[in-house]
C-alpha cells in the first residue's frame, strides 16, 4: 500500500513537473523541449545574463523624427530562401523581425504582411512555431490597422521565442536573433543619419557603445562550434571605432513619484562623434550586414 502511494506520488510529481513548463498556446513541437524540467533547471542555473535593447526603439526614433519610410533599407524577402544554416536563419530572423517592426510602425500594411510571412517561414525552420503560432498570426492580422498593437504583438512573440530558446539550451540561436536585430537597427540608423544629417540619430548611434560590448560578449559566450568567429572579429573591429566616441555622463539626482510608481532619471549624457567616425562606423555596419544577409 505504502509502495503504491510512493509510486503514485512519483508519477504525479513527474506529471506536475512536465506540465508546468508548457505555454498555454504552444504547439506540440515547442512543448516537447520546453517541458523538459532538467533543461529548464539548467538554464536557470546558468549564471550570466545579457540584455540588448529592442531594435524597435531605433525605428521608433526614426519615425518620431518624421523621416519618411524607406523600403530600400530592408532585407529583400526573396533572400530568405538562401538561409539554410541555423546561423543564417537565426541572424536573419532578427533582421526580418526588425524590418517587420519598422513596416508596422509606418503602417505599411502590405509590406508588414510580406515580412510577417517571411518571419513565419524562418521561425518554422528554427522550430519556433510555438511563439509565432496561429494565435499570433491572427492577432497580428486583426490589429494590422493599429501600429502600436502590431509592435507590441511582434515584440511579445520575440520574447516568447527568446524564453523558449533559453529553456531549450539554444542560447546561441537566441543570441544570434538579438545580433541580427541590433545590426539591422544600426543599419537603419546609419542610413538615416547619412540621408538626413540629423544629430539625434548620430547620437543614438554613439549611445550603442555598451550594447556593442554586450553583443560581442554574448556572441563569445554562446559561440557554438566557433560559428560566430567571423562576426565577433568584425564587431571587434567596429568596437575600435566606438571606443573613439567621447561620452560624458553627468549624474543628476533622480526624482521619484511614489504614488505613480515612477522615477524620472534626470542625468545628462553628451555624445561627441565626428563625421569621419560616423562614416567609418556606417561603412563597417554595412559590410557586416552584407556579409550576413547574402
Amino acid at each position: 500500500m505504502k509502495l503504491n502511494f510512493y509510486y503514485t506520488t512519483f508519477i504525479a510529481l513527474l506529471f506536475i513537473g512536465l506540465n508546468s513548463c508548457g505555454g498555454n498556446d504552444s504547439k506540440e513541437s515547442l512543448d516537447k523541449e520546453a517541458l523538459d524540467p532538467a533543461a529548464s533547471l539548467n538554464t536557470n542555473f546558468d549564471g550570466k545574463i545579457f540584455s540588448i535593447p529592442s531594435p524597435v526603439q531605433t525605428a521608433m526614433l526614426i519615425k518620431e523624427l518624421k523621416l519618411p519610410f524607406d523600403g530600400n533599407m530592408l532585407n529583400a524577402v526573396e533572400n530568405a530562401k538562401n538561409y539554410s544554416t541555423e546561423f543564417s536563419q537565426a541572424i536573419n530572423l532578427g533582421i526580418y523581425g526588425t524590418d517587420l517592426g519598422y513596416c508596422a510602425l509606418y503602417e505599411q500594411k502590405n509590406n508588414a504582411l510580406k515580412y510577417l510571412s517571411v518571419v513565419e517561414k524562418i521561425t518554422g525552420e528554427l522550430g519556433l512555431e510555438g511563439a509565432f503560432d496561429k494565435n499570433f498570426m491572427s492577432r497580428f492580422e486583426k490589429n494590422s490597422e493599429d501600429q502600436d498593437s502590431m509592435v507590441v504583438i511582434v515584440s511579445d512573440a520575440f520574447r516568447k521565442a527568446d524564453y523558449f530558446l533559453k529553456n531549450a539550451k539554444r542560447k546561441s540561436t537566441s543570441s544570434l536573433i538579438l545580433a541580427g536585430g541590433w545590426i539591422e537597427s544600426m543599419h537603419f540608423a546609419c542610413k538615416m543619419s547619412a540621408q538626413s544629417n540629423n544629430t539625434k540619430i548620430a547620437e543614438r548611434i554613439g549611445e550603442q557603445q555598451q550594447t556593442l560590448n554586450t553583443m560581442i560578449e554574448i556572441l563569445k559566450e554562446y559561440n557554438k562550434s566557433k560559428q560566430n568567429d567571423a562576426l565577433i572579429s568584425s564587431l571587434t573591429d567596429l568596437k575600435s571605432d566606438f571606443d573613439k566616441i567621447a561620452i560624458e555622463y553627468t549624474y543628476v539626482a533622480p526624482k521619484t513619484d511614489v504614488k505613480n510608481k515612477t522615477t524620472t532619471l534626470q542625468n545628462e549624457l553628451k555624445v561627441t562623434i565626428s563625421k569621419e567616425l560616423l562614416a567609418s562606423i556606417s561603412e563597417k555596419i554595412n559590410a557586416i550586414r552584407e556579409s550576413v544577409i547574402k
Binding site: I49, S51, V151, K166, L178, Q208, Q210, L265
Partner: peptide
Amino acid sequence: KFVSDGQVYTAFLDREKAEFKTTFF
C-alpha cells in the same frame, strides 16, 4: 501598452545577486 524588449531574464538565485547591463534611451 509597454513594448517588450523581446527578452526574458531568468536566474535561479541562491543567496546571491544576478546583474546585467543595459541602456535606457
